[in-house]
């Protein structure tokens, strides 16, 4: 599913190069659950953003389902984000002033799905994360755990083949965190490919594989 070879990424600050990803080779096959761990600042989020087509590598080769992502036009990257990838953020990133249902249905709008079908698919996705009873609530009327479950429903609504989560429990208390993790675990069992950044070694144990990052390199 994911094939990375020699991927590099640097930030530039005040004319000096700050290498963040320094030559990463990574292969993840379909159906796998991979946990990415490592100390703060080791480049985990940067790597996830590249995998999720939110950011671009400077160098190296990245293929998703065999398709070259590095060098693809912006419009194709948008398609990949909309059709192939579901991204879950640490900070939920729901759109304020919109109901849970509207938030979950929004990715379908960009795929040209008709309104009735958007609502029906979004309803199903909310049901999947057990949030259907809060469909009409706005984000600020939901707890952190509930918001994250809505965000997961949004990531699922386009039936993506790849789920990416960057510290999805980082902003949650342990009880809510456990619920969210259980959900991801179930999704993996249903066959989703899952890549998750975490600091929690217990989560690492549930994963098929743990990739340790240190200073922008896999160790």
């Amino acid at each position: 599913m994911i094939q990375m070879q020699g991927v590099h990424k640097s930030y530039w600050r005040g004319g000096t190069e700050l290498p963040v990803i320094r030559g990463i080779d990574l292969n993840i096959s379909a159906g796998e659950f991979v946990a990415i761990m490592g100390p703060s600042g080791s480049g985990k989020s940067t790597l996830m953003n590249i995998i999720g087509c939110l950011d671009l590598a400077d160098r190296g080769d990245y293929r998703l389902d065999g398709e070259r992502v590095s060098g693809a036009p912006f419009s194709r990257l948008a398609e990949l984000r909309g059709q192939t990838i579901g991204f879950v953020f640490q900070s939920f990133n729901l759109i304020a002033n919109r109901s849970a249902l509207e938030n979950v249905a929004l990715p379908l709008l960009y795929q040209g799905v008709a309104r009735e079908e958007r609502i029906s698919l979004a309803t199903q996705a909310l049901q999947r994360v057990a949030m259907l009873d809060r469909a009409s609530h706005q984000p600020n009327q939901l707890s952190g755990g509930q918001q994250q479950r809505v965000a997961i429903a949004r990531a699922l609504v386009n039936r993506p083949s790849l789920l990416i989560a960057d510290e999805p429990t980082g902003a949650l208390d342990s009880r809510n965190g456990d619920q969210v993790l259980q959900l991801f675990s179930d999704l993996h069992k249903e066959g989703h490919t899952l890549v998750m950044v975490t600091h929690d070694p217990l989560i690492g144990e549930r994963a098929d594989r743990v990739v340790m990052l240190h200073d922008g390199m896999v160790v």
Binding site: F74, A78, E79, N93, L94, I95, Y110
Partner: peptide
């Protein structure tokens, strides 16, 4: 701007 980022993350392209 954050909302714009979210919309892009869920599939919006530049033209959208």
């Amino acid at each position: 701007i954050r909302e714009i980022g979210v919309r892009m993350a869920i599939g919006a392209n530049r033209r959208h």
